[in-house]
Nucleic acid binder design. Structure first.
Length: 834
RNA sequence: GCGGGUGUGGCGGAAUGGUAGACGCCGGGGACUUAAAAUCCCCUGAUCCUAUAGAUCGUGCGAGUUCGAGUCUCGCCACCCGCACCA
C-alpha cells in the first residue's frame, strides 16, 4: 500500500535508463520474429522539439511498442534531416558555423526526445550532414548518373543580385528577394537534374496499390504528376513556319477560331523587331502569380497578323500572342476553341472572335445557341463535317487517327511532372561529386575518393556561394586525366537526403549505402507517420528514389511506405493585446476573459490556430514535462482528438491527463494479490477492452482506445476485490504501457511483476468472455424510444415482442391504438408500428 | 475556377441504418479537511411541466428512401485544406 504520488521527475529517467541499459528497443535484423518497421518523418534540427514533433513521435511510439507486445521485431529509428538553409541563415546572423549550429541543435533535441521516453533504436541514429551518410549518397548519385538517370542542362533560376545567390520560389516575395529586398532576376545556369519523368507512368499507376494511403495524398500526387492525353499537331502558318500545338480536345478541332502562343514562344520572340510586340511581351511578364491575381487577370492577346491554316477546312485563323498560355506546358501554343474551353471563351469574347458550337447534348442540338460560358462537358459532336454525330471520345480517336495517317500530328501523352532540378548554389548540403575538366568534360569523382566533404573554413561575410568563393576547395585534379580541373560547387537539394534515409536506417554497412538483403527484411515501412505538408514533394521523391534504385538493381522494393498516416497539427488559442501577440505563459484566464499577467490589461482571445512563433501561441514541451512528466504529455497527445485532426492544446486538458496518471498509480493500491473470486461483469469488460483497444490502436484510433481505457479504469476502481479485478488492473496496465510507459513500468514493478513491461506481451483475452448474457432491448413506438428492457441474449422474437407489449410505458404510449406491425431486431430493439 | 474534406452539447469528440451525445474537459452541488491541495460522490443538450414522474424538440439547412436516418440518396449553405490560365 502506498499513499505516495507517482513522481515522474525521478521515475521517467529511471525507466529510460533501464530500457537503454537492457537495449530493449534495439532492432535485431537476425531475429526470427516477424518484422515491423515503424517510422516517423525525421525532424529538421531547428533547435527545439515542438508539440507537433511530440504528437507525431508519440503516435509512432505507441504503434512501435504495441507491435513489440504483439510479438514483432520492431525497427523504430530516429535521425536528423540536417542539411538546409536555416543553418546558413544562422551562420550569417549569429556568426556560427552551420555545422556547429546543427550539431548543437541535434544534441539539444535528442536530449528532449529522450526525456519523452520514445522506444527508439538510437544505435541507428545518423544525421544527413554526416560525411559518412552523404558520401554514400554521392555514390548513389554517381550510380544514377551512370545509368542515365542524372543529366545536366541549362535552366532558369531566381537570382538575387545583392546576395548573389539563387532563391527558391518561396523566397521570392513580390518579385523581390526575401532577405535583400532586391529585384529578382531570371538567370540561366547549368544545373543537375534527376529523370523523375522516366518514372511518371509508374509513379502514377503505383498509387493504385497504396490502399493504406489517405485518398487525399494519392489524389494530390496524381494531380501533381498530371497525366493528360491528346493530340499534338502542327499548323502551317502564313509566314511559312509551322506551329506545333497540343490539345486534349481534338474532337473540337472544327471549333478552333484562333491560335494562341506564349509570350516567350520562339515565334513571338521572332517578331520582336516590332516594338509593339516587345511592349506586349513585357506586359505579359508583369502579371502577378498569386492566386487572387490570376483569378482576376484579364485575358490579353496581341494579333501577330500571321494566320494558321486549319488542317481540315483550310480556313485561315489568326495567331495571337496571349498572356494565358504557358511556355513550359505542352508546346507553348494552343488552338483556341471558345465554345468548349472557358479561357478560350473569355479570350474570344474580348477580341470578338467566332464562338462556334461543335459539341451538343445530342445530334439535334447543332443549332442551339451558346450561353455565356464555354461548354466543356461531354456530348455529341456537331457542325464538324465527318465527325458529326460521334460521341466526344470517338471523335477524339478519329481525329488522332487521321492526323497520324496524314502525317501532320500524333496522339501524345503529356505530363505536368517536370524533371527534378537538384542543384543548389549553397554551402550546407551534399556536394555533388563531379569535376569539370577542360579536356574530359564532366567527370564523376572516383568512388574510392568519396566522400567529397565540405570544407570547414568558410566565410559567410561576403555574399554568394561559399564553395564557389573558397580559396582552394574547388581546385582539384581531373579524376580521369589528372590535369587541373574544377570541382562542382553546387550541392544537392535537401529533398535528396530525405529520399533514401529510411533505407539507411534499415541497413548501414560501412562500405556501402545499404545491404539489399537487410533492406528486404524490413522494407516496406509498415507505418509511416508525418505531416500532410509532405504529401507531394518528399513522398513523391522518396517513391522515385526507391524505384530508381530498384531500376538499377540496388534494392528490390516497389514502394517504400506501405501505410501512410498524416497527422493533424497541435493548435492553441491566440491572445492579442494592442495589435501584438501574447504567449500563453503571459496570459491569465478567468472564466470567459483573459488578462495579461504583466499589467493586468484584458486580452483578446483569438482563434485557435497552429502553434507558431509568429503568433506566440507556443507551449514548450520541455516546460510541460518538467511540470507533469512524459506520460501526461504523451496521454494528452493521444486523447480526445482523432489523430488526423488538429489537437487543441489546453492547460485544463493536460491537468486531466496528469490526474489520470495518478489514478493509474493508485490502481496499485486496490490491487490485492490475495483476492479471489469472480466478478463476471468486470471480467467481461476487461476482455472486451483488450480486444477493442487493440483494434483501435491498429486503426490508429488512439482517442477511442483512450476512452475505453478510462471506462475500464472507472469500472475497476468501483468494483470490490476479486481475482477478476486483479485481472482488469493488469490488463489496464498492459494496455496503457505503449502510451504511458513510465507509470506502467512503475506500477508493474510495485506489483512485484518480473521484468520490464516494455518486454511484456499484449494481454490475452478469452473469446467466451466477450459475449454478454443479458442485453438491453430498446422499444420504439412512433419512431421514438418508449422504454428499455433487459432480456437474455438470443431471446426469441416472440418473447421480445411479448415483453415489449407488457411494458406499462409502452402501453401508455400505444393508448389502445391498433398495432399494424411489429419489427423485432434480435438483441437490439422492438419497434411497434400503429 | 477545379479537386478534396468537415459540419453532433459550453469545448474536444463517440455512435456495424437500430437507446444520439460514450470518454475527456469546463461548469454546478456535496463529502473529507481548522483550511487548502489532493481525492471521492452526485448533477450537467434545450424547452415545457402539475418537476424523483412525464412531454416535446434536437446531429448545418431543405427534401427523399425506410418500421427506423447523425449514418443512405438528391438539392442547398457555411467553413477549412490542396492545386491552379496545364490547353
Amino acid at each position: 500500500m502506498t499513499d505516495t504520488r507517482f513522481d515522474p521527475s525521478s521515475a521517467d529517467g529511471r525507466w529510460q535508463r533501464a530500457w537503454d541499459e537492457a537495449g530493449t528497443f534495439a532492432a535485431d535484423s537476425n531475429s526470427d520474429k516477424p518484422k515491423s518497421y515503424i517510422l516517423e518523418m525525421f525532424p529538421y534540427p531547428s533547435g527545439r522539439i515542438h508539440m507537433g514533433h511530440v504528437r507525431n513521435y508519440t503516435m509512432g511510439d505507441v504503434i512501435a511498442r504495441y507491435k513489440k507486445m504483439r510479438g514483432y521485431e520492431v525497427l523504430h529509428p530516429m535521425g536528423w534531416d540536417a542539411f538546409g538553409m536555416p543553418a546558413e541563415n544562422a551562420a550569417m546572423e549569429k556568426k556560427v558555423h552551420p555545422g556547429e549550429w546543427t550539431r548543437s541543435n541535434i544534441a539539444a533535441m535528442k536530449a528532449q526526445l529522450q526525456r519523452i521516453g520514445f522506444a527508439l533504436d538510437w544505435t541507428r541514429e545518423f544525421a544527413t550532414c554526416d560525411p559518412e551518410y552523404y558520401g554514400h549518397e554521392q555514390a548513389l548519385f554517381i550510380d544514377l548518373y551512370e545509368s542515365g538517370l542524372v543529366y545536366r542542362r541549362q535552366s532558369e533560376v531566381n537570382w538575387d543580385p545583392v546576395d548573389m545567390t539563387v532563391l527558391a520560389n518561396e523566397q521570392v516575395i513580390d518579385g523581390k528577394g526575401w532577405r535583400s529586398g532586391a529585384e529578382v532576376e531570371k538567370r540561366k545556369l547549368d544545373q543537375w537534374f534527376l529523370k523523375i519523368t522516366d518514372f511518371a507512368e509508374d509513379l502514377l499507376s503505383g498509387l493504385g496499390d497504396l490502399k493504406d494511403w489517405p485518398d487525399k495524398v494519392r489524389l494530390m500526387q496524381e494531380n501533381w504528376i498530371g497525366k493528360s492525353s491528346g493530340l499534338e499537331f502542327s499548323f502551317e502558318l502564313s509566314n511559312g513556319e509551322t506551329l506545333p500545338v497540343y490539345t486534349t480536345r481534338p474532337d473540337t478541332i472544327f471549333g478552333a477560331s484562333f491560335c494562341a502562343i506564349a509570350a516567350d514562344h520562339a515565334i513571338a520572340q521572332g517578331l520582336a523587331s516590332d516594338p509593339k510586340v516587345v511592349a506586349f511581351i513585357e506586359e505579359c511578364k508583369k502579371g502577378g502569380t498569386t492566386a487572387a491575381e490570376l483569378e482576376t487577370a484579364e485575358k490579353l492577346g496581341f494579333d501577330t497578323g500571321v494566320t494558321a491554316k486549319h488542317p481540315f477546312t483550310g480556313e485561315p485563323i489568326p495567331v495571337f500572342i496571349a498572356n494565358f498560355v504557358l511556355m513550359d506546358y505542352g508546346t507553348g501554343a494552343v488552338m483556341g476553341v471558345p465554345g468548349h474551353d472557358q479561357r478560350d471563351f473569355e479570350f474570344a469574347t474580348k477580341y470578338e472572335l467566332p464562338i462556334a458550337r461543335v459539341v451538343a447534348k445530342d445530334a439535334s442540338g447543332a443549332a442551339a445557341p451558346m450561353g455565356n460560358e464555354a461548354e466543356a462537358g461531354d456530348g455529341i459532336v456537331v457542325n464538324s463535317d465527318f465527325l458529326d454525330g460521334k460521341p466526344v471520345d470517338d471523335a477524339k480517336a478519329d481525329v488522332i487517327a487521321r492526323a497520324e495517317s496524314g502525317g501532320w500530328g500524333e496522339g501524345k501523352t503529356v505530363w505536368r511532372l517536370r524533371d527534378w532540378g537538384v542543384s543548389r548554389q549553397r554551402y550546407w548540403g551534399t556536394p555533388i561529386p563531379f569535376v569539370h575538366c577542360e579536356t574530359c568534360g564532366v567527370v564523376p569523382v572516383a568512388k574510392d575518393q568519396l566522400p567529397v566533404t565540405l570544407p570547414d573554413d568558410i566565410d559567410f561575410e561576403t555574399p554568394g556561394n561559399p564553395l564557389e568563393r573558397h580559396a582552394t576547395w574547388k581546385h582539384c585534379p581531373c579524376p580521369k586525366c589528372g590535369k587541373d580541373a574544377r570541382r562542382e560547387t553546387d550541392t544537392l537539394d535537401t529533398f535528396v537526403d530525405s529520399s533514401w534515409y529510411f533505407l539507411r536506417f534499415a541497413s548501414q554497412p560501412d562500405n556501402a549505402p545499404f545491404d539489399a538483403q537487410e533492406i528486404a527484411k524490413w522494407l516496406p515501412v509498415q507505418h509511416y507517420i508525418g505531416g500532410i505538408e509532405h504529401a507531394i514533394l518528399h513522398l513523391l521523391y522518396a517513391r522515385f528514389w526507391t524505384r530508381a534504385l530498384a531500376h538499377i538493381g540496388k534494392i528490390d522494393v516497389a514502394e517504400p511506405f506501405a501505410d501512410l498516416f498524416t497527422q493533424g497539427m497541435v493548435t492553441h488559442e491566440t491572445y492579442g493585446l494592442n495589435g501584438a501577440w501574447l504567449s500563453p505563459a503571459d496570459v491569465r484566464i478567468e472564466g470567459e476573459k483573459a488578462f495579461a499577467v504583466d499589467g493586468g490589461a484584458e486580452v483578446e482571445r483569438g482563434r485557435v490556430v497552429k502553434m507558431s512563433k509568429s503568433k506566440k501561441n507556443v507551449v514548450d514541451p520541455d516546460n510541460i514535462i518538467d511540470q507533469y512528466g512524459a506520460d501526461a504529455v504523451r496521454w494528452f497527445m493521444l486523447s480526445d482528438s482523432p489523430p488526423e485532426r488538429d489537437l487543441p492544446w489546453s492547460e485544463a486538458g493536460i491537468e486531466g491527463c496528469w490526474r489520470f496518471v495518478q489514478r493509474l498509480w493508485r490502481l496499485f493500491d486496490v490491487y490485492d494479490s490475495g483476492a479471489s473470486g469472480e466478478d463476471k461483469a468486470l471480467a467481461r469488460k476487461a476482455h472486451q477492452a483488450i480486444v477493442a483497444v487493440a483494434e483501435d490502436i491498429e486503426a490508429l484510433g488512439f482517442n477511442k482506445a483512450v476512452a475505453r481505457i478510462y471506462e475500464l479504469t472507472a469500472a475497476a476502481e468501483k468494483a470490490g476485490p476479486s481475482e477478476s479485478r486483479n485481472f482488469a488492473i493488469r490488463a489496464i496496465l498492459h494496455m496503457v504501457a505503449p502510451m504511458m510507459p513510465h507509470v506502467a513500468e512503475e506500477v508493474h514493478e510495485a506489483m512485484g511483476a518480473d521484468g520490464l513491461i516494455a518486454d511484456a506481451a499484449w494481454p490475452q483475452h478469452d473469446d467466451a468472455m466477450l459475449v454478454e448474457d443479458e442485453v438491453t432491448i430498446a422499444v420504439q413506438h412512433k419512431g421514438k424510444l418508449r422504454d428499455t428492457l433487459t432480456a437474455p441474449k438470443g431471446a426469441a422474437k416472440e418473447d421480445l415482442e411479448a415483453l415489449a407489449l407488457a411494458s406499462e410505458k409502452v402501453q401508455r404510449s400505444l393508448d389502445g391504438a391498433e398495432i399494424r406491425k411489429v419489427i423485432v431486431v434480435p438483441d437490439r430493439l422492438v419497434n411497434i408500428v400503429t
